[in-house]
Design a protein around this nucleic acid. Sequence first.
DNA 1: GAGATGGTTCGACTACGGTCGAAGTATGAA
DNA 2: TTCATACTTCGACCGTAGTCGAACCATCTC
Lengths: 227, 227
Amino acid sequence: MKEGPDIAHIAALIGDPARANMLTALMSGKALTVSELAEEAGVTIQTASSHLSKLDAGGLLRPRKQGRHKYFSLANDDVAHVLEGLMGLAAGSGHLRTRTGPKDTELRKARVCYNHLAGDMGTQMFDSLMAQGHLAMDGGDLILTETGVEFTTGFQIDLSILRAKRTPLCRECLDWSERRSHLAGSLGRAFLSRFEELSWAKRDQKTRVVTFSQSGAKEFEQFFAMR
Amino acid sequence: MKEGPDIAHIAALIGDPARANMLTALMSGKALTVSELAEEAGVTIQTASSHLSKLDAGGLLRPRKQGRHKYFSLANDDVAHVLEGLMGLAAGSGHLRTRTGPKDTELRKARVCYNHLAGDMGTQMFDSLMAQGHLAMDGGDLILTETGVEFTTGFQIDLSILRAKRTPLCRECLDWSERRSHLAGSLGRAFLSRFEELSWAKRDQKTRVVTFSQSGAKEFEQFFAMR
DNA sequence: GAGATGGTTCGACTACGGTCGAAGTATGAA
DNA sequence: TTCATACTTCGACCGTAGTCGAACCATCTC
């Protein structure tokens, strides 16, 4: 009756509307300040502060002080992963916050998941990389193959920098809208920022939507076509 | 500020201690009655009933009436998956309900996750099946290869029955203790029940622990050795 | 220094939701 | 029919936790 970790505590942390809004906002991958998160959640700064300290104590956030600002971001990919999972359940039970509107289709098309590309285009990219043999599964872990290394370096992504970090290079992340995997981990992050550098795509500042330019979408299709 | 599914609602459902206990109990994969779940959660039958109707309304459970009993089980693998994820976070933040005791090591060794094998032996089995090429990733989906079909039928598992069901044959599930994937889906379930039929292993009724007999462990090692 | 801006702490208010006793409904047994 | 068991509904109680105003720190600017 009481073995295993204490689910209830952190589920309750996520379970408050204000905190859930903050966490959802942080799924954009950006680090946000207390006041930004307060606005995002629709509460005053005081309450936001108290919420954030609780989330931090629960290990869900990573705070960083910078001058008189305090920036919060999600603690790690695992947290983002669980949040996506919860979104999947919520979406499945037909409990959408907003009725499926025009913004919803944009979110399904391409969006930011923590720090990498998700949605239709995210899964397409993942599928393509697998089909081309650039990614492979090795005993439950996702790995970058030799051709994959070539491909990414050709994409102007410096793997040595990524490998130096503690976070895993490749991870898969389950998509709540597509119910399929897409690429997470530091490589997933690198791909997305590369898309931005090449101005193939732009993140919306507020809504997690990623919009590809017309030419950007074409380039993307070129590299990540299926078959 | 309000795009995406309503995380908070279902997170709050999981966030109550009594409900979390019930859900954890259901991770054993067994369907339990209202009174059993009440005892599991340490509350009276009335409150259990109200909790269960809320969980049901949230789409987390699948109720089945049978005579004057009402059996509840987890709605699907997705729910189990999210619960495992939450356990991972809770374990990671050092928030174990019970200090890592003797039962904890048993849980890490081999346990039931919803309806399939998890823990050290679960991930070992998954890794072995991947290494032997019986399982493979195909565009984000886990599939059974041709040799995999051979292997499982040689194991006296009737695939045609499994394929007839709506639930996916193969799925991967992230392990909170090992932080690696193991095999879920109807095939994962089939393997576990086969182990029981062969009396290689036995589930403990209360604690989710799976104990392998000495000879059973040897057989297991034979079939699912790494390399 | 003084003033402004970003966060935190404290205290008081409030409301939502978990809890159980008691009564009510269904199903099964005798 | 009568009794027992399994569960649900109702109502009342109570505690916890979210909320904000006000005052308090800390950091930067001038």
